[in-house]
Protein backbone atom coordinates (compact mmCIF):
# COMPACT_ATOMS: atom_id res chain seq x y z
CA UNK A 1 0.00 0.00 0.00
CA UNK A 2 2.77 2.40 0.93
CA UNK A 3 4.36 1.92 -2.42
CA UNK A 4 1.25 3.06 -4.26
CA UNK A 5 0.71 5.98 -1.92
CA UNK A 6 4.14 7.24 -2.72
CA UNK A 7 4.36 6.50 -6.42
CA UNK A 8 0.87 6.64 -7.90
CA UNK A 9 -0.25 10.10 -8.81
CA UNK A 10 -3.97 10.88 -8.99
CA UNK A 11 -3.79 11.49 -12.73
CA UNK A 12 -2.28 8.09 -13.39
CA UNK A 13 -4.84 6.39 -11.14
CA UNK A 14 -7.65 8.03 -13.07
CA UNK A 15 -6.21 6.79 -16.37
CA UNK A 16 -5.87 3.27 -14.98
CA UNK A 17 -9.45 3.29 -13.80
CA UNK A 18 -10.55 4.48 -17.22
CA UNK A 19 -8.67 1.62 -18.88
CA UNK A 20 -10.16 -0.83 -16.40
CA UNK A 21 -13.69 0.38 -17.10
CA UNK A 22 -13.00 0.08 -20.83
CA UNK A 23 -11.80 -3.51 -20.40
CA UNK A 24 -14.79 -4.42 -18.29
CA UNK A 25 -17.20 -2.83 -20.74
CA UNK A 26 -15.74 -4.90 -23.56
CA UNK A 27 -16.60 -8.11 -21.70
CA UNK A 28 -20.09 -7.33 -20.48
CA UNK A 29 -20.98 -10.85 -19.41
CA UNK A 30 -17.64 -11.84 -18.02
CA UNK A 31 -16.17 -12.66 -21.43
CA UNK A 32 -14.15 -15.83 -21.54
CA UNK A 33 -15.58 -17.16 -18.30
CA UNK A 34 -18.82 -17.93 -20.16
CA UNK A 35 -17.27 -20.49 -22.48
CA UNK A 36 -17.92 -24.10 -21.62
CA UNK A 37 -14.81 -25.35 -23.38
CA UNK A 38 -12.87 -25.83 -20.10
CA UNK A 39 -15.12 -28.78 -19.26
CA UNK A 40 -14.19 -30.60 -22.43
CA UNK A 41 -11.35 -33.09 -22.17
CA UNK A 42 -8.94 -33.03 -25.07
CA UNK A 43 -7.68 -36.51 -26.08
CA UNK A 44 -5.57 -35.13 -28.93
CA UNK A 45 -5.59 -36.58 -32.44
CA UNK A 46 -6.78 -40.23 -32.35
CA UNK A 47 -6.51 -43.13 -34.77
CA UNK A 48 -9.36 -42.35 -37.23
CA UNK A 49 -11.08 -45.74 -36.73
CA UNK A 50 -10.06 -48.60 -34.46
CA UNK A 51 -12.52 -51.45 -34.90
CA UNK A 52 -13.50 -54.09 -37.45
CA UNK A 53 -16.68 -53.33 -39.41
CA UNK A 54 -19.32 -56.08 -39.11
CA UNK A 55 -22.27 -54.59 -40.92
CA UNK A 56 -22.87 -53.21 -44.38
CA UNK A 57 -25.69 -51.63 -46.35
CA UNK A 58 -28.39 -54.27 -46.99
CA UNK A 59 -27.78 -56.20 -43.76
CA UNK A 60 -30.47 -56.60 -41.14
CA UNK A 61 -29.67 -54.39 -38.14
CA UNK A 62 -29.05 -56.31 -34.90
CA UNK A 63 -31.54 -55.54 -32.15
CA UNK A 64 -30.61 -54.04 -28.77
CA UNK A 65 -32.40 -52.73 -25.69
CA UNK A 66 -30.62 -49.98 -23.80
CA UNK A 67 -31.59 -47.69 -20.90
CA UNK A 68 -32.44 -44.08 -21.75
CA UNK A 69 -31.93 -41.19 -19.32
CA UNK A 70 -35.43 -41.43 -17.84
CA UNK A 71 -35.38 -45.02 -16.58
CA UNK A 72 -36.98 -46.61 -19.66
CA UNK A 73 -35.51 -49.19 -22.01
CA UNK A 74 -35.44 -48.41 -25.71
CA UNK A 75 -35.06 -51.16 -28.26
CA UNK A 76 -34.42 -50.89 -31.96
CA UNK A 77 -37.19 -53.40 -32.71
CA UNK A 78 -39.85 -51.15 -31.18
CA UNK A 79 -39.55 -48.94 -34.27
CA UNK A 80 -39.98 -51.80 -36.76
CA UNK A 81 -42.68 -50.92 -39.26
CA UNK A 82 -43.19 -47.52 -37.60
CA UNK A 83 -40.16 -45.28 -38.03
CA UNK A 84 -36.91 -45.08 -39.90
CA UNK A 85 -34.09 -44.98 -37.36
CA UNK A 86 -30.81 -43.07 -37.36
CA UNK A 87 -28.32 -44.37 -34.82
CA UNK A 88 -25.55 -41.99 -33.82
CA UNK A 89 -22.78 -43.69 -31.87
CA UNK A 90 -20.41 -41.15 -30.32
CA UNK A 91 -17.08 -42.05 -28.67
CA UNK A 92 -17.44 -40.56 -25.21
CA UNK A 93 -19.06 -37.79 -23.21
CA UNK A 94 -17.09 -34.60 -22.52
CA UNK A 95 -14.82 -34.94 -25.54
CA UNK A 96 -14.42 -32.63 -28.55
CA UNK A 97 -16.60 -33.06 -31.66
CA UNK A 98 -19.09 -35.31 -29.75
CA UNK A 99 -19.95 -32.41 -27.49
CA UNK A 100 -21.18 -30.56 -30.57
CA UNK A 101 -22.49 -33.34 -32.81
CA UNK A 102 -25.75 -33.94 -30.93
CA UNK A 103 -26.44 -30.22 -30.37
CA UNK A 104 -26.18 -29.95 -34.17
CA UNK A 105 -28.75 -32.71 -34.68
CA UNK A 106 -30.84 -31.02 -32.04
CA UNK A 107 -31.52 -28.05 -34.35
CA UNK A 108 -31.93 -30.30 -37.41
CA UNK A 109 -35.08 -32.14 -36.26
CA UNK A 110 -36.92 -31.08 -39.40
CA UNK A 111 -34.59 -33.21 -41.55
CA UNK A 112 -35.44 -36.29 -39.49
CA UNK A 113 -39.15 -35.44 -39.43
CA UNK A 114 -39.22 -34.94 -43.19
CA UNK A 115 -38.18 -38.57 -43.67
CA UNK A 116 -40.20 -40.06 -40.81
CA UNK A 117 -37.06 -40.88 -38.87
CA UNK A 118 -36.17 -41.00 -35.20
CA UNK A 119 -32.65 -40.43 -33.92
CA UNK A 120 -31.12 -42.61 -31.21
CA UNK A 121 -27.95 -41.24 -29.65
CA UNK A 122 -25.75 -43.90 -28.08
CA UNK A 123 -22.52 -43.76 -26.13
CA UNK A 124 -20.76 -46.24 -23.83
CA UNK A 125 -20.93 -43.83 -20.88
CA UNK A 126 -23.12 -44.60 -17.90
CA UNK A 127 -26.48 -42.89 -17.36
CA UNK A 128 -25.37 -40.27 -14.77
CA UNK A 129 -22.52 -39.09 -17.01
CA UNK A 130 -24.76 -38.96 -20.07
CA UNK A 131 -27.41 -37.13 -18.08
CA UNK A 132 -24.99 -34.43 -16.92
CA UNK A 133 -23.33 -34.11 -20.32
CA UNK A 134 -26.50 -33.88 -22.40
CA UNK A 135 -28.26 -31.54 -19.97
CA UNK A 136 -25.72 -28.83 -20.71
CA UNK A 137 -26.50 -29.16 -24.45
CA UNK A 138 -30.02 -27.81 -23.98
CA UNK A 139 -33.18 -29.87 -24.30
CA UNK A 140 -32.61 -32.72 -26.74
CA UNK A 141 -35.60 -33.97 -28.75
CA UNK A 142 -34.22 -37.50 -29.25
CA UNK A 143 -33.50 -40.38 -26.84
CA UNK A 144 -29.98 -40.77 -25.52
CA UNK A 145 -29.09 -44.36 -24.66
CA UNK A 146 -26.38 -45.75 -22.43
CA UNK A 147 -24.42 -48.70 -23.77
CA UNK A 148 -22.44 -48.89 -20.54
CA UNK A 149 -23.19 -52.38 -19.22
CA UNK A 150 -22.43 -54.98 -20.42
CA UNK A 151 -19.89 -52.53 -21.67
CA UNK A 152 -20.41 -51.54 -25.30
CA UNK A 153 -22.65 -54.55 -26.06
CA UNK A 154 -24.62 -52.69 -28.74
CA UNK A 155 -21.43 -51.14 -30.12
CA UNK A 156 -19.93 -54.64 -30.47
CA UNK A 157 -23.02 -55.85 -32.38
CA UNK A 158 -22.63 -52.94 -34.79
CA UNK A 159 -18.87 -53.45 -35.05
CA UNK A 160 -18.02 -50.01 -33.66
CA UNK A 161 -16.36 -50.67 -30.31
CA UNK A 162 -12.80 -49.37 -30.38
CA UNK A 163 -9.86 -51.16 -28.79
CA UNK A 164 -9.84 -48.67 -25.88
CA UNK A 165 -13.51 -49.28 -25.00
CA UNK A 166 -14.89 -46.10 -26.57
CA UNK A 167 -17.25 -46.25 -29.54
CA UNK A 168 -16.53 -45.06 -33.04
CA UNK A 169 -18.17 -41.90 -34.30
CA UNK A 170 -20.61 -43.86 -36.45
CA UNK A 171 -23.94 -43.28 -38.14
CA UNK A 172 -26.35 -45.99 -39.25
CA UNK A 173 -29.61 -45.39 -41.09
CA UNK A 174 -32.08 -48.24 -40.70
CA UNK A 175 -35.35 -48.36 -42.59
CA UNK A 176 -38.75 -49.41 -41.26
CA UNK A 177 -38.08 -53.02 -42.30
CA UNK A 178 -34.98 -53.09 -40.10
CA UNK A 179 -32.54 -53.04 -43.00
CA UNK A 180 -29.37 -50.94 -42.87
CA UNK A 181 -29.44 -48.36 -45.66
CA UNK A 182 -26.45 -46.15 -44.79
CA UNK A 183 -23.26 -46.67 -42.81
CA UNK A 184 -20.70 -44.01 -41.96
CA UNK A 185 -17.99 -45.15 -39.57
CA UNK A 186 -16.41 -41.75 -39.51
CA UNK A 187 -12.96 -40.46 -38.66
CA UNK A 188 -13.33 -40.05 -34.89
CA UNK A 189 -11.56 -36.67 -35.03
CA UNK A 190 -13.97 -35.09 -37.51
CA UNK A 191 -17.61 -34.10 -37.69
CA UNK A 192 -19.73 -36.07 -40.19
CA UNK A 193 -21.33 -33.65 -42.63
CA UNK A 194 -24.99 -33.05 -42.00
CA UNK A 195 -25.85 -33.08 -45.71
CA UNK A 196 -24.46 -36.63 -46.06
CA UNK A 197 -26.95 -37.83 -43.47
CA UNK A 198 -29.73 -35.72 -45.01
CA UNK A 199 -28.99 -37.26 -48.43
CA UNK A 200 -29.05 -40.78 -46.95
CA UNK A 201 -32.44 -40.06 -45.39
CA UNK A 202 -33.74 -38.61 -48.66
CA UNK A 203 -32.83 -41.88 -50.41
CA UNK A 204 -35.15 -43.82 -48.06
CA UNK A 205 -38.13 -42.22 -49.74
CA UNK A 206 -37.21 -43.61 -53.14
Amino acid sequence: MRVFMVTVRPGLAAIMCGVTMLLMSLFPSGGRAEVRQPYIYSPGELKPTDSTPRLKVGDRAPDFALPDLHGAKVSLSQYLGKKNVVISFVPAAWTPVCSQQWPGYNIAKEIFDAHDAILLGISVDNVPTLWAWTNQMGKLWFPVLSDFWPHGAAAVKFGVLRADGAAERALFVIDKKGIIRFVDIHDINAMPRLEDLANALAKLDK
Binding site: M1, A13, C17, V19, T20
Partner: peptide, 12 residues
Protein backbone atom coordinates in the same frame (compact mmCIF):
# COMPACT_ATOMS: atom_id res chain seq x y z
CA UNK B 1 -7.02 7.30 -5.13
CA UNK B 2 -4.84 4.56 -3.67
CA UNK B 3 -7.73 2.12 -3.51
CA UNK B 4 -8.72 2.91 -7.09
CA UNK B 5 -5.14 2.36 -8.19
CA UNK B 6 -4.92 -1.00 -6.42
CA UNK B 7 -8.21 -2.19 -7.93
CA UNK B 8 -7.18 -1.00 -11.38
CA UNK B 9 -3.82 -2.74 -11.17
CA UNK B 10 -5.42 -5.95 -9.90
CA UNK B 11 -7.90 -6.05 -12.80
CA UNK B 12 -5.26 -5.14 -15.36
Amino acid sequence: VTLAAVVALAVL
